[in-house]
Design a protein around this nucleic acid. Structure first.
Length: 220
DNA sequence: AACTCGGGGCA
DNA sequence: TGCCCAGAGTT
């Protein structure tokens, strides 16, 4: 397990790898952020960012999504893929926002998670980005990178990964940590094809060391 | 913990 | 073609 100091160093190195890495999920209000995060499931943000300007020019509040016909909403988000499920999810989410919170996006993680179609990851993103509540959103990249590097244990579940990160990263860096690990996981520490030989974190990486040893054996 | 959902993008 | 993608709900 990496120490707090080692984690800090690792995050610093990652930041140098992606100097312009910024949060792509910034929206003018919590509702738009919430919808954008739900839309981003199983696809990249750049894809979602293609439809959100037009989408939010047309829909401004939960009432608008609740009122529109499902087929029409499907067409409005068709280009991001999985559009039938996502249109259905957004309508259900909007309806539960109206029912439970009078159409206002709640601020706590617990309240956010009580909404239809909102799980731990989405709740943490919205709580942290929109309401500046200290939280770390753990998605598949964050989880994989944390485990490979040795920030947390291999057997940790999402909740435990989250807790470990919160312990080892200063609170003021939680939001940016999420995005650093995402970029690193997406472009370098890839799920099926990690680029260990060219990785600046190799020296401190548990999984990287292991993979390099296996590589040596394999190649003689 | 292991499925199910299921479309666009890219090699 | 085949494989992946910044998840959530259900069993």
């Amino acid at each position: 397990m990496l120490t707090k100091t080692q984690v800090k160093e690792a995050l610093h190195i990652i930041e140098d790898m992606y100097p312009e890495a910024e949060c792509e999920l910034i929206h003018s209000n919590p509702f738009e952020l919430l919808i954008a995060v739900v839309l981003s499931a199983q696809c990249t943000d750049s894809l979602v960012n293609k439809v959100t300007p037009g989408l939010f020019a047309k829909y401004h509040a939960p009432d608008d999504f609740a009122a529109v016909k499902q087929e029409e909403l499907e067409q409005d988000i068709r280009s991001i893929g999985l559009y039938r499920n996502k249109a259905k999810n957004i309508k259900k989410l909007s309806e539960s926002l109206i029912e439970q919170f009078n159409g206002e996006v709640p601020e706590t993680r617990e309240e956010l998670m009580s909404l239809a179609g909102v799980g731990r990851k989405t709740a943490n993103v919205v709580a942290s980005v929109a309401f500046h509540t200290p939280a770390i959103a753990v998605d598949t990249h964050v989880e994989r990178v944390s485990k490979r590097l040795g920030i947390c244990r291999w057997k940790d579940n999402v909740r435990e990964v989250e807790e470990t990160l919160m312990k080892k990263v200063p609170e003021e860096e939680w939001a940016q940590t999420h995005h650093r690990l995402i970029f690193f996981g997406r472009y370098h520490c890839k799920a099926k094809d990690p680029q260990c030989p060219s990785c600046p974190l190799l020296d401190m990486c548990r999984e990287g060391q292991k993979r390099m040893r296996q590589r040596e054996v394999k190649h003689g």
